[in-house]
Amino acid sequence: MSTATAARESAPDVAKSRGPKFLQGWNMAALIFIGPAVLLLAVFMIYPAIRTVVLSFDNGLDNYVQLLTADPRFLSLRWPPGGSIFNNILWLLFYTGGCIVIGLIVAVMATRVRYERIIKAIVFLPMAIAATALGVIWRFVYSPDPDTGLINAILGVVGVDPISWLGNATFVNTALIIAGIWGSAGFAVVILSAALKGISSEILEAARVDGATEGQIFRRIIVPMLSLPISVIAVTLTINVVKLFDLVYIMTKGGPGNASNVIAVQMYQQFSARNFDYSATVAVVMLIILIPVMIFNIRRFRSERVVA
């Protein structure tokens, strides 16, 4: 028995005594399990990301100065304001807000009917569809020809002339954001609906007994109790907005002109035009915007680790 114990106790010491100092304590098991992933991440993600940062500084700070102050395709402060970063902010406000509001309304209504599962599945369905297909679906809905485009057909019934929703700078962002909300609202519905089920019916009954109206219950009880899931949805959709590419690229390629461009599409356009250092600059700006979310994630993980 004593031999076995001694052998077990001494095993780590043997492992520790081998190899260079920074590898001490690493054993074959650790290398086999995390080695491949660490190698892949280092070579194909971390190293390229560092190269991109270096590339963006190829001309010193020139690329950044140009992008942030002298590129109307990125940010134009002339009236009306525009540029890809401005459009991303529009998306952030109206797409994120729209998904949360619609998600809340649908989730609350759905809990009160027997076909809850069906309605939630219907709204969630677009989450399964490639943004490429989603883009075609909505190009069709917005078609300027009232014999093919559903919206112009409906407007035709009430005597409104057909509108080129995606070809008109006034409407294009609204049209895209509506398609985006249609694609993502199901995510908000499912999260909020799960959270709603966590609110005890006793609290709601008590409020009703005290004479609260349904509107008051919604604003004073349900919304505050949903603040955490709502913030989770907001963070998620914010990440979506910064990375938004497929839908805009498929539906308008950022057009007409630059009217509906977003940063991820602008990065790809610069990349395609072989302006590599400039496109790297746009990519770094995307990363910088995401850093606060990254820190938030790491903090959240650190606080959870205590539990684990």
């Binding site: 054993n27 990301a49 990375k243 991820a264 990349f271 496109s279 990254m294 790491i298």
Partner: peptide
């Protein structure tokens, strides 16, 4: 599996979650 810097390495992985594809395209 126990190994040194395990938690720090995992935090790096969590940090990498959000790196956009655009950051690595050119290299």
């Amino acid at each position: 599996v126990d190994f040194p810097f395990r938690d720090s390495l995992f935090l790096i992985v969590v940090g990498l979650l959000l790196v956009p594809i655009q950051m690595v395209l050119i290299p």
